[in-house]
Amino acid sequence: MTASTAAPARLRAPRRPGDTIFSGAALVGGLVILAALAAVAVFLIAQSIPAFSAEPRQITSTGEYANFWAYVVPLAFGTIWAALLALVFAVPFSIAIALFTSHYAPRRIARGLGSAVDLLAAVPSVVYGAWGIYVFAPFVRPFYVFLNDALGWIPLFSGNVSASGRTILTVAMVLAVMIIPIVTALSREIFLQTPRLNEEAALALGATRWEMIQMAVLPFGKAGVVSAIMLGLGRALGETLAVAMILSPSVIVGFFLLRTENPTTVAANIALQFPESYGVTLNVLIATGLILFVITFAVNAASRAIVGRRGGGKGV
């Protein structure tokens, strides 16, 4: 190695067993993930095939859906509708909490608040479901009655208010609580990475703290926040148990927030119908799962595209 002549004989590091083992393990790890994903996709597609030609009586025992698409379209709608409503509540709160912990709060409070929000992520969804039914739904119902009285002329708030408060709006708010920790934690890390120089330059030019955030922090963090929101959206799309427990579900398409009849989600519907299903009905449920898989895949691809185009998304 110390032989010094100029001839640029390539120096090769001796291959130690550790290197070989580690690179092999990393390769196997990556391949296993791909194989698992492929296995899931193959399973979903293979099991879904009979569903596309299912008879009405095989889709549900009531035979009210003429074909598979008449059944799955309202479910897909409900899935996206519930998730978008959840984002409406979650995103402003998450960004506000993230900015507060990264730029406003004294360090001690920021640390406490940060762990409290992280703690929300550790609560199992069955607990959220039980809390939603027994505590939250009865609690929000009086507000729903008020909304219906005051704003009933807006179609969103029209109709008979649910007697128990178990509506899509309640579900969306519970989902929001479940995705706030995800979006908050990621956004906070992004905001903390804003270059110190940019912030100080803004302040030196006479910007207030809010103006500094507008000029330096938010533009820097935009791509990262978008991908954080997409991760939250993914969680909301797939959430099963809390929705199944809280929602009063129907297979319908409708933009109403306070009524007893609400569109339900693919995942919740599978969870509710799976145990008692058999034969082609099972294939139909698995096929709805395939549709959810496609939706989630599309959401992830879209978020990748957004983050990629904007460039910035460091470390997310």
């Binding site: 549900t60 025992s61 009531t62 009210e64 007697a163 427990m245 129907s250 007893t260 509710l272």
Partner: peptide
Amino acid sequence: NEPGDAFPYKTGEGAA
């Protein structure tokens, strides 16, 4: 409606 394990109407409230 013929009897079945799924409730046939969309009126009213569903619960798990």
